[in-house]
């Protein structure tokens, strides 16, 4: 009885989060104001973080909130503030039917391909996820996956250096 109830609860939580993610996506795409679109994006990010919690990966979920909501979205917001976007929205306007069809196709395509691939070649998995310790996660990154992990940090360093160089070039022109 107890097991059944918690199983049902898990399904409710799963579909609740999927609904939040999809709703956030639609808000992002359809809203006229840039800031409201950003709010939709943040809603989606929170939904994804919730899914990580459901998969017993609270560390990843919290990192999602810390990095994407706490830092990336805030910096996007900062950029919006600098561009003088007004609340009425200047992104609105007539959208042609062709564009809508292409947009829907473009958004469904990855879902169909990835979904079919995941369904066909689903790895054997356990029904109730178990939490991996942060210590093990770190060891996993630093032992078998050390090369990709370091390459990603190199990429970030290059991106940061590029940004600094761009800023200094613009300053010289002035």
């Amino acid at each position: 009885m107890d097991n059944l109830a918690s199983e049902n609860l898990a399904w409710i939580v799963l579909f609740g989060h999927i609904a939040i993610i999809v709703a956030g996506g639609f808000i992002t795409v359809l809203s006229e104001s840039l800031v409201r679109a950003l709010m939709g994006l943040i809603l989606t990010l929170f939904g994804v973080a919730g899914l990580f919690f459901l998969m017993a990966a609270p560390f990843i979920g919290l990192m999602q909130i810390l990095i994407y909501v706490g830092a990336v979205s805030v910096l996007i917001f900062f950029a919006i503030m600098l561009t003088n976007a007004w609340p009425g929205g200047d992104e609105s306007g007539n959208i042609s039917g062709k564009k809508v069809i292409f947009a829907i196709l473009a958004s469904i395509a990855p879902a169909v391909f990835l979904g079919s691939a995941a369904l066909r070649t689903a790895p054997p998995s356990i029904f109730v996820p178990e939490e991996t310790e942060v210590r093990e996660l770190g060891r996993f990154f630093l032992e078998p996956y050390i090369l990709p992990f370091e390459l990603i940090s190199l990429l970030l360093t290059v991106a940061m250096a590029g940004a600094v160089i761009l800023v200094f070039e613009r300053r010289k022109k002035k």
Binding site: M39, L62, L66, V74, M81
Partner: peptide, 23 residues
């Protein structure tokens, strides 16, 4: 097991509120 990360993550959300309020 992730108490400290939870606090760091959720206190970061406050900046967002500040942004929305200001804008």
């Amino acid at each position: 097991n992730v108490g400290l990360v939870l606090i760091l993550a959720f206190t970061g959300v406050n900046v967002l509120a500040l942004c929305i309020a200001g804008w």
